[in-house]
Simulated scan of single mutants.
Amino acid sequence: MTDLESRLNRLDTPGLRPPVLPDADVAYTLHDTPIGTLLLAVAGGRVVASSFGDEETMTTRLARAVSPRVLRQPRPLDDVRRQLDEYLSGVRRAFDVEVDLVLATPFQRLVLNDLPTHTSYGATTTYGAVASDIDKPKAARAVGTALGANPVCVVLPCHRVVGANGALTGYAGGLDAKRFLLNLEAKS
């Protein structure tokens, strides 16, 4: 037996093996995209974040809202990352993932749950129209605020909501990201 084989055999003893960490309650990763870096997170197999927010702020929110066991573990997000990349390259038109709005306020949930039914791929709607759809016709600004804090950007298409005159207004990833997403969808 060589010296190297002898050292490798010693590493295979139970007391010397590297620890195997359990899966996180919340797994997250940072994913670089053409529209910026997104923090992606899943909990219980559901997407809880697809956010432009900074890592420390988002992981703190996740720890408070879901579980203190928030670990950077990219593997559980492989499917989400693949679907996001396919969407951003124009190959995919819809996401096939479960979403959990645990980071959203009750009003945000009302707005975001209604969003996919009123904005199809390649189409836009207005903040006022969304406000009317949720039976709050005078809440266009509140709808804008709720969408601006969407914890699951891109997956829940808040980028498809524009001003009453068709103007692009605020987006968490910036107006260039919003323009990119709308142009991407318009080409398909």
Rank of each mutant, 00 (worst) to 15 (best):
A24T: 13
L115N: 04
A65W: 08
T126K: 00
T13D: 05
D32C: 10
H118L: 10
V154I: 15
R81G: 09
R7M: 06
T124C: 06
G44K: 10
G122Y: 11
L84R: 04
D54R: 12
G148Q: 11
T124K: 00
G53S: 07
H159D: 06
D32G: 14
V97D: 04
R82H: 08
V130D: 06
T29D: 13
G173P: 02
K136N: 13
P19E: 15
V102G: 00
A63E: 08
P68K: 14
V47I: 12
H31A: 12
E86N: 08
P19N: 12
L115V: 08
V48Q: 02
L110F: 02
G128N: 01
S89Y: 02
D54V: 13
G128T: 05
D85E: 11
D133Y: 08
H159P: 06
L110N: 00
R81Q: 13
A172Q: 12
L103T: 09
N150E: 13
R109T: 00
A65D: 06
N150Y: 15
K138I: 00
T60M: 08
L40C: 05
L77I: 13
K136T: 14
A24G: 14
L11I: 06
E5Q: 15
S120H: 10
S67E: 06
V111H: 10
D100A: 05
C153P: 01
Q73P: 02
D23Y: 00
P22Q: 12
T2D: 07
D114E: 12
R72Y: 08
A167V: 05
P106R: 08
F95T: 10
R17F: 13
T124R: 00
T37E: 15
G44P: 10
Y87R: 05
